[in-house]
Write a protein that binds this DNA or RNA. Structure first.
Length: 267
DNA sequence: AACGTGTCCAACCGCTATATA
DNA sequence: GTATATAGCGGTTGGACACGT
């Protein structure tokens, strides 16, 4: 049968963490490293479930976390990444070193949403409010702020935003957060959305698929059956947030964020 | 000072994908 | 092959705090 339960839920603490609990968790991870969250609480002498320990460590105790306010550059980067990725907070967080998905999610909900609304932008569609309400036309394009993200900032991202116009499939943000997590059934919005964003595929990306990586396992009958894993281009590798990996050596490659190749484009 | 309202954010909840017995 | 646990994600909640009246 399956595994044994991860923890005795009846004997676990909930709510805010105490300093002592924090110190126990930090001490244990410093000594043993991040590992099996399932066994960590017991080993560290914590009356918490592993899930709670992981969350506390990831969102608050990790030494590489950056504290403090977001800059305007950060704001613009988050806005553009959100336009690109939707509510994929972990992927967005991956582009902002030291920031957590939870932090960015909170920041989005408390600051950026309002900021976009003040600009007359729908924070979910990134379209002008009138367009988002169904009056959009094919010429309607989202208006990004007059002060675009500085090139110096964007240059730090492992992909480039360019002025060329290439639209591509992307996961849609959930509709105002009312959809269940992982929802992917959003209806297309702003079908002619020109995000004014592009992935510079010519770039040498630090996380580009290794040259030894096999091509798409199942030999596609046409190039359109192939695709580019956006996770790679966003700096996410297997073992991190990206699960775009071959489930088994013989299994199919599953791309969660698939950009179909353009005509004449090859990996 | 007391109260009401709004904001922030840490933590929890529920879900999915994957791993394991 | 099936059932179940784990890891991780996004959505939501509720307490603490700030501010205005």
């Amino acid at each position: 049968m399956g595994r044994s339960p991860c923890c005795e839920k009846a004997h676990t603490n909930k709510g805010a963490w105490t300093k002592e609990e924090d110190q126990r968790l930090i001490g244990y991870i410093k000594a043993h490293g991040e590992g099996c969250w399932r066994s960590l609480p017991k080993a560290a002498g914590l009356l918490r479930c592993g899930k709670s320990c992981r969350l506390r460590w990831m969102n608050y105790l990790r030494p590489d976390l950056k504290r403090g306010n977001f800059t305007d550059d950060d704001d613009e980067l988050i806005i553009k990444l959100h336009a690109l990725l939707g509510n994929k907070w972990s992927l967005i967080a991956g582009q902002l070193p030291g920031r957590t998905d939870n932090e960015i999610k909170n920041y989005w909900n408390t600051h950026i949403k309002r900021k976009l609304l003040n600009r007359g932008m729908d924070p979910h569609t990134h379209c002008p409010i009138s367009a988002a309400s169904g009056l959009t036309t094919s010429t309607t394009a989202p208006v990004f702020p007059s002060s675009p993200a500085p090139a110096s900032r964007l240059a730090n991202a492992p992909f480039a935003f360019q002025s060329s116009t290439v639209s591509f499939a992307r996961p849609s943000p959930s509709d105002d957060g009312h959809s269940s997590s992982g929802g992917s059934s959003d209806a297309p919005r702003c079908p002619d959305l020109n995000l004014d964003l592009d992935l510079d595929l010519s770039m040498s990306l630090p996380c580009s698929p290794p040259k030894t990586a096999p091509p798409a396992k199942s030999t596609p009958t046409s190039h359109q059956q192939q695709g580019i894993c956006l996770c790679y281009h966003l700096g996410v590798r297997n073992g991190e947030a990206c699960t775009c990996k071959t489930a088994s050596p013989a299994g199919p490659r599953v791309f969660r964020f698939l950009r179909p190749l353009e005509e004449g484009q090859y990996i």
